[in-house]
Design a protein around this nucleic acid. Structure first.
Lengths: 114, 114
DNA sequence: CGGGATCCAACATGATACTG
DNA sequence: CAGTATCATGTTGGATCCCG
């Protein structure tokens, strides 16, 4: 099965391009790994503090995209103050091993030249 | 081995973030897969025609980055008209399987929602 | 607490024309 | 042929303030 595309045969879907379009931004992969490593769902603030440098706006937007892609589940509790939990969906978990192996590759081959 | 990072322990190197910083742009992964699938080195124009939509400027810049990261080798032949061949280095080839598995994941999980 | 709204700087990408 | 130079535009990410 061809997972990339050529110009000669016009395609509607180019797996390698599309997946990087989705998860190739600055924070997506790190957010997913962070959620994947937690045993339980994480609250918004917990996620924000764990990741660290990310701005509220971008964290919120990235989580929203992940939710739309079906990779992350968002659970709202009708409490005051509000509480929102985030966790990986089954689909999100299925992506995790690939992110890990990429990260491991980087750990072995990219130290020092960054 | 931890391949992602936390804010609590300041790190100089965050594999998952850094690898996506490098190969997470619009064309890098597709270029690598294209080079990886060819048996022989590819000329600049050949690469350009195979990829299709990419502009000259971006193709040149991306190849330059790949070269600086040691993922792609650039061979110049002192001919007229000039001839330049591109191929994956061993390091570049070692990344290939991870790109493939990501693309395969996309092929199975992302069709239709793009 | 978990955002939304706004404004802005930086960067990535693209179109076009030109060149050794 | 394989680029470079320039200009224009789109997109991303961040800072700040505000709100239920």
């Amino acid at each position: 099965m061809r997972v990339f595309c050529r110009n000669s045969e016009p395609v509607d879907f180019c797996p390698v391009k599309d997946v990087f379009d989705r998860i190739g931004n600055k924070w997506t992969a790190l957010i997913m790994l962070t959620l994947g490593q937690a045993e339980r769902p994480m609250r918004y603030r917990q996620l924000h503090e764990t990741i660290g440098d990310i701005s509220q706006k971008v964290l919120t937007a990235t989580l929203k995209n992940l939710q739309e892609d079906g990779l992350v589940a968002r659970q709202v509790y009708p409490e005051v103050p509000p509480r929102v939990d985030y966790s990986l969906t089954a689909k999100g978990q299925s992506l995790l091993p690939h992110l890990y192996s990429l990260a491991e590759w980087a750990n072995e081959h990219m130290r020092g030249n960054n």
